[in-house]
Design a protein around this nucleic acid. Sequence first.
DNA 1: CAGTATCCCGAATGATACTG
DNA 2: CAGTATCATTCGGGATACTG
Lengths: 121, 121
Amino acid sequence: MAETSPGARLSAAHRELLDQTLDKWSLQILDQLCGRSLRFNELRRAIPAVTQKSLTTALRRLERNGMVTRVIVNTRPVAVEYRISPLGKTLQDLIDALLAWSSERLPEVERARSRFDEENR
Amino acid sequence: MAETSPGARLSAAHRELLDQTLDKWSLQILDQLCGRSLRFNELRRAIPAVTQKSLTTALRRLERNGMVTRVIVNTRPVAVEYRISPLGKTLQDLIDALLAWSSERLPEVERARSRFDEENR
DNA sequence: CAGTATCCCGAATGATACTG
DNA sequence: CAGTATCATTCGGGATACTG
C-alpha cells in the first residue's frame, strides 16, 4: 500500500493558509464576494452573526493573503468596496462544493450526533 | 444569537458543521484516514504537530458527527483503530482538492503577503 | 497502548466607546 | 460610513501527571 511518510501531507504553512481561508468567517466572506462586491456594512448585514471586529480582522487577513481587494471609492463620506481577487476566485468552485456538501449531509450528521449522544449517556 | 437571515447562504448549523470538519486537525485526520485506518498513536505520529489532547478532542467530534468510526480490537493491550466512515468518505475529493489548492497557490499567497507587508510599513 | 484529569496561559472574541 | 481603541472574558491548547 502507499506508505504515509512520517510528517503530514500538510506543512505548517499550508495548514496555516487553509486555516486562514476556511475559517468560520472567511469562508462566508469569500462566498459572498464571489457573488458580487460588497461594502463593509453590506457584508455585516449579509453575515448577521459576525461582529465588526471579527469582520475587520478577517477582511484584513484575506486582503493580506491576496484573496480580496479593498477598493476605496472617493465619495463623501468615503465608501470602501471589497472585491474578490483573481486568486480568491480560484476558490469559488471549492467553496460552492463545500457549501453544497454541508447542505446535503447535515441531516445525516445530525442523525449521527443523536445516535452518538444516545449511546454515550 | 446567531440567527440566520435571508441573504446568508449558511445557517449557523451548516457553519458549525463546516467548522468542525475543516478545522486545523480534523482536515488532516480525515485526509490520513481516507488513505487507511490508523491507530491512535499512529495518527499522532502521522500528524507530528498535534497534541494528545487535541487529537482526542478532534477524533471524538469526528466520531460524534459520524465521519469516523472507532473500532476497538480486543487484543491485550487493547488496540483502537480509527476508520473513515462512508459519510466521511464523501469528503475525500473535496479534501484532496483543498490540499491541492493550497499547494498550488501558496507561493502566490506568500507574494501577496510580502507586498501587503511592504505597503503597510 | 489509548486514553483521562488538571492546571494554566495566551489568543480570540465580545462589548463598548470614540473618530475622520 | 468604515473603521480604531480599549477593556473584559472566554476558551482552545499546551504541559504534565496518572490509569486500565
